[in-house]
């Protein structure tokens, strides 16, 4: 009985986790303040949904979601490679607006505001993952594999080059490294994982429309990356669990109905603020950005 509720929360943790480590790769490790990250999530979700609704097998929808998102990541790197800090943030934010506008207006492809209903639950190797528990197993496996891949990347020498680009791009160039190529890879891989998170989201919620992919949706993910600590995968795990679970106990406190919505939101915001005041670099943050 209660398991349904809990399993749903664990599934959310899984999806947010993949989304968060993908953002962590770009922001925490490569120092690319990509405020357009939700666009990759959106592209992944729509790609997977559209393919699935046209009867493509799930594994293909899933992989293509990641690959198409990754291609957009590579593309985004081209105009933004010379931009730094605030300008990069603004440009990438602009990108997410563009993708949102496309989702909303290219109605012949995306059905615009009507969204895509009836996205089928995944089927792999003949097993249907339609019930909650099996979906949770699927997400857990994918989240684990994603974590392992990102961990391998970040602890390898390539990961150190990413951090070098973050700390001082010019110095990295002067050591003979092609930073444009490195940043492109960073955005692309980050986009890939955001894309597959999008695919999992679409197949879980079974209905997507543009309203799920606005800049607002980036805020919890950014919070997780910052509160977990920049460039810390361990911190990201912890922060995801805490940020997803935090609003739930508040449901059980009976506020008078007139203020129940805003009251819970305010308490949640307050707790986040307290965490940041106590630990400005996040739980495991060791990175100071200049």
């Amino acid at each position: 009985m209660i398991s349904g509720y809990f399993i749903h929360l664990l599934i959310l943790i899984g999806i947010y986790f993949i989304l968060a480590i993908s953002l962590q790769l770009a922001v925490g490790f490569a120092g690319l303040l990509n405020l357009g990250h939700i666009a990759f999530f959106c592209i992944g979700a729509y790609t997977s949904a559209l393919l699935a609704l046209n009867n493509f097998p799930f594994w293909l929808c899933f992989l293509l979601a990641g690959i198409v998102a990754m291609l957009f990541g590579f593309l985004l790197s081209i105009p933004t490679s010379k931009l730094k800090g605030d300008y990069l943030a603004l440009a990438t934010m602009g990108f997410s607006f563009v993708i949102y506008a496309v989702a909303l207006n290219w109605t012949s492809l995306t059905r615009g505001p009507l969204g895509l209903p009836g996205i089928p639950k995944p089927t792999l190797f003949g097993i249907s993952f339609s019930d909650n528990f099996s979906f949770l197993i699927l997400i857990a496996i994918i989240a684990l594999i994603s974590y392992l891949i990102v961990k391998k990347i970040t602890t390898s020498p390539f990961g150190k080059v990413l951090e070098a680009v973050r700390d001082d791009e010019l110095a990295t160039k002067v050591l003979g490294k092609n930073t444009f190529k490195i940043k492109t890879y960073a955005l692309g891989i980050s986009a890939f994982f955001a894309g597959i998170a999008g695919s999992l989201y679409a197949h879980y919620i079974t209905f997507i429309d543009p309203s799920s992919f606005t800049l607002l949706q980036l805020i919890p993910v950014l919070c997780i990356v910052i509160i977990g600590g920049l460039a810390s995968l361990k911190g990201t795990i912890l922060a995801t669990i805490i940020l997803v679970l935090l609003p739930e106990p508040l449901r059980f406190i009976g506020f008078p109905s007139s203020i129940v919505g805003p009251a819970r939101q305010m308490i949640y915001a307050l707790i986040l603020l307290l965490i940041l005041l106590y630990k400005p670099k996040g739980f495991y943050g060791k990175v100071e950005l200049e």
Binding site: M1, Y5, H8, L12, S211, G261, R264
Partner: peptide, 24 residues
């Protein structure tokens, strides 16, 4: 007894709310 939950226009929250209302 009317039990009101906030969906915050977010389908993920809607599902959490539904599960809590129905299962708990």
């Amino acid at each position: 007894e009317l039990l009101i939950e906030d969906s915050g226009t977010d389908p993920k929250k809607g599902i959490s709310a539904f599960r809590k209302l129905v299962e708990i």
